[in-house]
């Protein structure tokens, strides 16, 4: 039963107030893209043991989508941040590096 802090309304949300949305920072491929790129966009997902970035919606609250960086094994949360980020923001990356020096960055 995770607790994630919604970066929009500041509530420490109970997992039951949230809806999961899969991996974060996917880049959309549309018409004109190659089959390979489009397939990767649709189906290829990271499944790491360790640092992971994911989408959550504060469904029973402010209705906002936000992103979370957490460890899939220990469930440590490195931070949550707003959804309009193509990449994890610097402070999140710094928080991860402080806790996981061996982390090699996003694949």
């Amino acid at each position: 039963m995770l607790i994630l802090t919604c970066p929009y309304c500041g509530i420490r949300c109970d997992e039951t107030e949230l809806a999961p949305g899969g991996e974060a920072h996917l880049k959309r491929f549309g018409p004109g893209s190659t089959d390979e790129a489009f397939e990767a966009y649709l189906f290829e997902r990271e499944n790491p043991m360790g640092v992971h970035f994911e989408r959550w919606r504060h469904a029973y609250g402010c209705g906002r989508w936000f992103l979370a960086a957490r460890d899939t094994v220990t469930l440590e949360v490195f931070g949550t941040y707003k959804a309009q980020m193509p990449e994890p923001p610097e402070e999140i990356v710094a928080a991860i590096r402080a806790r996981r020096p061996e982390w090699e960055g996003r694949a």
Partner: peptide, 13 residues
């Protein structure tokens, strides 16, 4: 509604 908000908030914000 959630689908619309998803695209508006995360892709075409």
């Amino acid at each position: 509604h959630g689908w619309m908000e998803d695209w508006l908030q995360c892709e075409w914000w």
